[in-house]
C-alpha cells in the first residue's frame, strides 16, 4: 500500500490518474481508515490531500465563502464569520462524530464517502453549495446534489478530486439550519437529516427556500416541492403542514438497524418543520 502526500493539485491528480489499482483520497480518514480496518477497502494507493493549500483554506469569494475540502469540522466551528453566514452548514459539519472525529473529519470526506446519511451534505445542498473538482481535464463545478449518485457512488471521474465548496453570498434576512435524528444525543449516524435555507422579505414572508433531506433515500435529496410549500408563506401552521407533507412525500427510505421506513418518513416531516422554524428565526435576526 503506497502513501503519497503531494503538495499540489496537479500532483494529486497525476497520482490518482496514474494509479493502476484502487486509489483512495485521504482527507480526515475517519471513514477510510475504518473501512480499511474492516477489510471493506484495500487500496493500492492512498493520496493524502491535506498538504495541498487549496483544500485547507476558508476564504471569502464573490461575497460567498469557499471552503477547502480538507478543512475539519473543528476548524469550521472556530470560524466565527462563516458560522454567522451559514450556521446550518457549520452545525451540520459539527454533528459528524465526536470531538475527536471533529478534529479530523472534513466536509469533502463527508460527501465523498458516499453515504446518504452524511450530516453535512443536506446542509450544503440546502445552502446551494457548488463543489469544485479538479481532474486531468482541469477544473469543473458541480452542484453538491449532483456529486453523489447513490450509496458509495460519486460523479467523480478517474483522477478527479474534490477541491473545495463554494457557498453563495448570503442575502439579507436569510439563514439556514440543519437537524438530524439519532437515538442517542451523540455518536450515531443520522436516521434522518433535514437541511433548510430560507430568505424572507421585510414583511417576514419567505421569498426563497431550499430543503434537503438525508438518510431517507439512496442519496441525499434536494426537495423542491418542500421549498415550494413554504415560499410565499410566513411559515404559519398551514405552511408547516404543507412542508411536512411535501418532505414526507419525497422520502423513499429503507428499513434497517437504524430505523424503520415508517419512522424515517414520520420524522423527516417533523425535522424539516423544526429546521425550517429555526432557519426562519435566524433569518429574522439577520
Amino acid at each position: 500500500m503506497r502513501y503519497e502526500a503531494p503538495e499540489s493539485l496537479e500532483g494529486a491528480v497525476a497520482l490518482l490518474a496514474g494509479a493502476t489499482g484502487e486509489a483512495r483520497v485521504l482527507a480526515g480518514g475517519t471513514d477510510l481508515l475504518v473501512q480499511m480496518r474492516a477489510d471493506i477497502v484495500d487500496p493500492e494507493l492512498i493520496v493524502d490531500i491535506k498538504k495541498i493549500a487549496e483544500t485547507r483554506a476558508v476564504t471569502e469569494e464573490q461575497g460567498g465563502w469557499r471552503i477547502g475540502a480538507a478543512v475539519t469540522g473543528a476548524e469550521l466551528k472556530e470560524h466565527a464569520r462563516l458560522k454567522q453566514a451559514w450556521p446550518g452548514v457549520v452545525e451540520a459539519a459539527n454533528l459528524i462524530g465526536s470531538t475527536q472525529v471533529q478534529g479530523r473529519a472534513t466536509l469533502g470526506g463527508n460527501l465523498c464517502n458516499g453515504s446518504p446519511a452524511a450530516d453535512s451534505v443536506p446542509a450544503l445542498i440546502a445552502a446551494g453549495a457548488v463543489a469544485t473538482l479538479a481532474g486531468p481535464q482541469g477544473k469543473r463545478d458541480l452542484p453538491v446534489e449532483d456529486v453523489m449518485l447513490g450509496p458509495r457512488k460519486l460523479a467523480l471521474r478517474k483522477g478527479e478530486i474534490l477541491v473545495s465548496f463554494l457557498l453563495p453570498p448570503r442575502p439579507p434576512r436569510s439563514s439556514d439550519a440543519y437537524l438530524r435524528f439519532i437515538p442517542r444525543t451523540e455518536m450515531d449516524i443520522a436516521v434522518v437529516g433535514a437541511g433548510v435555507s430560507v430568505t424572507i422579505d421585510g414583511a417576514g414572508t419567505i421569498t426563497a427556500a431550499r430543503v434537503s433531506l438525508g438518510a431517507v433515500a439512496a442519496r441525499v435529496l434536494l426537495v423542491p416541492e418542500a421549498a415550494r410549500a413554504i415560499v410565499g408563506s410566513r411559515l404559519d401552521a398551514a405552511a408547516q403542514q404543507r412542508l411536512e407533507t411535501a418532505a414526507r412525500a419525497a422520502c423513499q427510505p429503507i428499513d434497517d438497524k437504524r430505523g424503520t421506513t415508517e419512522f424515517r418518513i414520520d420524522v423527516a416531516g417533523v425535522l424539516t418543520r423544526r429546521a425550517a422554524l429555526i432557519a426562519l428565526d435566524r433569518a429574522r435576526a439577520n
Binding site: R184, E186, K257
Partner: peptide, 24 residues
Amino acid sequence: YIYGADGKLQNAGFLDYRMPVASD
C-alpha cells in the same frame, strides 16, 4: 443485538450498538 434474516449480527460495533454516552 440486531440480527438480519441471514442470521448475522448487524451491529457488531460501538457505532450501532448504542451504549449511553456522557451526554445521554
